[in-house]
Lab assay of single mutants.
Amino acid sequence: TDVTFHVNGRNLHLKGADEELLRRIEELIRRGADIEELEKAVKEWEK
């Protein structure tokens, strides 16, 4: 799945995201995470 999140005026584009990653990103956004936290979560998922 390709999806782009718009967070605090910045874009986080995910290519090939699975349901697990999407749920994790949505949860972080609900908690008020900043873009750096979201990018870190994506990097951890990519490993």
Rank of each mutant, 00 (worst) to 15 (best):
T1S: 12
T1F: 15
T1K: 15
T1H: 12
T1N: 11
D2I: 04
D2C: 15
T4H: 15
F5G: 13
F5C: 15
F5D: 14
F5H: 15
H6T: 10
H6F: 05
V7W: 02
V7H: 04
V7C: 12
N8T: 02
N8H: 06
N8L: 03
N8F: 02
G9C: 04
G9K: 00
G9S: 02
G9W: 01
R10T: 14
R10A: 14
R10V: 15
R10F: 12
N11A: 15
L12A: 00
L12F: 15
L12C: 01
L12T: 00
H13C: 07
H13S: 06
H13T: 14
H13D: 04
L14P: 00
L14H: 00
K15C: 07
K15A: 04
G16E: 05
G16R: 07
G16Q: 07
A17K: 03
A17S: 04
D18W: 01
D18T: 15
D18N: 12
D18F: 02
E19F: 09
E19N: 12
L21M: 08
L21I: 15
L21G: 02
L22Q: 04
L22C: 05
L22K: 04
L22H: 03
R23D: 06
R23C: 06
R24K: 10
R24P: 00
R24T: 13
R24M: 12
I25C: 08
I25P: 00
E26A: 12
E26Q: 08
E26P: 03
E27N: 09
E27S: 10
E27A: 12
E27L: 10
L28N: 02
L28Y: 05
L28A: 07
I29W: 08
R30M: 11
R30P: 01
R31I: 10
R31Q: 14
R31H: 13
R31T: 12
R31E: 13
G32W: 02
G32H: 04
G32C: 03
A33C: 14
A33N: 07
I35H: 03
E36H: 07
E37R: 09
E37C: 07
E37I: 10
E37S: 09
L38R: 00
E39I: 14
E39Y: 09
K40L: 14
K40V: 13
K40R: 12
V42C: 04
E44V: 08
W45S: 07
W45L: 04
E46K: 11
E46V: 10
K47Q: 13
K47N: 11
K47G: 13
